[in-house]
């Protein structure tokens, strides 16, 4: 195939608690991203992309849910309504994948290929992420 290239580690940004300090999220994302880069010889591509979606995740959630900062800090990933949660994850995943593949190619000369790769990989990532979140959630409800 050679086109599908899903990344599931971004689940970190989704499950990081909303009420915790933003510094922890950013630094954590940076370290996780660098770790992935270290294993894949990608320079700093994953660190860059992961820190980016970690930074915008809060603004995006405010935009999608129409809630205030305070209300979001009170809520968790389990209390969010599913359509909002789903849209939030889709958008962040697309942004992340697009950044990764763009930085990897370092040019827009094969733009069609880039978009195709982003869409296909996002689809597979989404399936894996939703599945992973499901595991997280059921574990929580039993506890």
């Amino acid at each position: 195939m050679g086109y599908i290239d899903p990344y599931v580690y971004i689940i970190f940004v989704f499950v990081f608690p909303f009420n915790k300090d933003k510094t922890g999220l950013l630094v954590g994302s940076f370290i996780l991203g660098l770790f992935i880069d270290l294993l894949t010889n990608d320079g700093g591509i994953h660190a860059f992309s992961l820190v980016f979606i970690a930074y915008i995740r809060f603004f995006l959630l405010r935009l999608l849910s129409g809630k205030s900062t305070f209300e979001i800090e009170e809520s968790t990933i389990h209390t969010l309504r599913f359509p909002i949660l789903f849209m939030w994850i889709v958008i962040l995943t697309i942004i992340h994948h697009f950044l990764v593949f763009t930085l990897e190619q370092f040019s827009f000369t094969h733009f069609g290929h880039l978009i195709f790769k982003t869409v296909v990989s996002t689809l597979l990532s989404m399936v894996l992420i939703i599945f992973g979140l499901q595991l997280f959630m059921t574990k929580k409800s039993h506890a």
Binding site: K22, T23, L26, V27, F30, G33, L34, D37, L38, N41, D42, G43, G44, I45, A47, F48, V51, F52, Y55, L103, F106
Partner: peptide, 25 residues
């Protein structure tokens, strides 16, 4: 912090593109 981390990461990316110098990551 966001801007700082992004700059560092971007530095690594630039560094990795000149492959003779990509000694760090």
């Amino acid at each position: 912090l966001f801007v700082f981390l992004e700059l560092v990461a971007f530095g690594f990316i630039i560094n990795s593109h000149s492959y003779h110098h990509s000694k760090y990551l």
